[in-house]
């Protein structure tokens, strides 16, 4: 309504708990008497450019594979095709999931809540949705919300993809996600934004939202989009930091990249061939 009437911004004056907000456009965070505080918090929230966003159509083409050593990273990349996500009831290998879903390629997904190798728990860090789910499954573990704020929320539907900074308190209801993309079929929360608009993010920028072990040497994995809007994912065959990984991906022409779970879970598969593992 504000836009129709020619205003640049507006605010609601309803008082209520932030976590009970109806959506991202109606956040019960500040009443009109606390505007000064809102501006202060806004300045803190955009530090390190965390309000970056990506929105583009998905370009679907043949699935291609390439490998190259770039900036000390043994990169193995798969691009093309149409992406879809899958959440297992327990835990499964990527090869089995590729086979079971009739897919041609796959990579391990995002970070899971229980890292123990013997665990069979399938809870993920952050919200998630697959085509099989009617609504987004929110992350209601409020104790980790402060750490997750502004991490890259990746979503797509049949016509386009987007990456937005995640705001846990206002992204609880499915409706909040639909405001970003009405026909969204898949979403998950990346561990850190590694490359944006073809530029590698700095160590400080990665650590501003990523976990403290982002700079550990691990076999790293990512998902994102190239300059043409094609999905691209890949992993390293050697152990590298997220900073090195980001630099090498930007060098290879990756436009947007978010960090996936890396280390023991790293797994890149094309058909029956395993090309990288943890």
């Amino acid at each position: 309504l504000a836009r129709i009437l020619g205003y640049k911004m507006s605010f609601t004056i309803a008082n209520g708990l932030a976590e009970e907000s109806p959506g991202i456009l109606e956040v019960n965070r500040y009443v009109h008497t606390r505007m000064e505080k809102a501006w202060e918090d806004r300045d803190k929230a955009i530090k390190n450019g965390v309000t970056y966003r990506y929105e583009a159509p998905i370009t679907v083409g043949p699935i291609t594979y390439e490998s190259e050593k770039v900036e000390g990273c043994d990169l193995r990349l798969i691009r093309g095709g149409m992406p879809t996500t899958f959440i297992s009831d327990a835990r499964q290998g990527v090869s089995d999931l590729v086979k079971a879903t009739g897919s041609q390629a796959g990579i391990n997904g995002t970070f899971f809540a229980m890292a123990a190798i013997k665990s069979t728990d399938n809870r993920l860090v952050g919200p998630s949705k697959t085509p099989e789910m009617a609504e987004v499954l929110p992350d209601m573990e409020t104790t980790r919300w402060p750490k997750l704020r502004n991490r890259p929320l990746v979503m797509w539907g049949p016509y386009g993809a987007a990456i937005y900074p995640y705001q846990p308190a206002t992204m609880v209801q499915d409706r909040a996600y639909r405001e970003g993309m009405l026909d969204m079929t898949d979403c998950f929360l990346g561990g850190a934004w590694l490359v944006h608009q073809g530029m590698a993010r700095t160590r400080e920028q990665i650590l501003a939202t990523g976990s403290s072990d982002s700079m550990d040497y691990r076999r790293r994995a990512f998902f994102g989009f190239d300059m043409d809007g094609r999905p691209i994912c890949g992993a390293t065959y050697n152990s590298v930091t997220s900073e090195q990984f980001a630099v090498s991906l930007a060098e290879k022409g990756v436009s947007e990249a978010v960090l996936l779970d890396s280390g023991f879970s790293t797994s890149l598969v094309l058909g029956e061939k395993i090309l990288a593992s943890g």
Binding site: V60, G61, P62, I63, T64, Y65, E66, S67, R76, I78, G80, G81, M82, P83, T84, T85, F86, I87, S88, A90, R91, Q92, G93, V94, L97, V98, T101, G102, S103, Q104, A105, G106, I107, N108, G109, T110, F112, D121, N122, R123, L124, S128, F188, F223, P231, C233, L260, D261, S265, S267, L270, G271, K273, I274, L275, A276, S277
Partner: peptide, 25 residues
């Protein structure tokens, strides 16, 4: 084994399949 995966569906480029054979672990 992992609880979440990103899968790609589409036609696989023939030359890429050959290249992947060399890198298979």
């Amino acid at each position: 084994p992992i609880p979440h995966a990103i899968l790609l569906k589409g036609e696989v480029d023939k030359a890429s399949e050959e290249l992947a054979k060399k890198d298979e672990i």
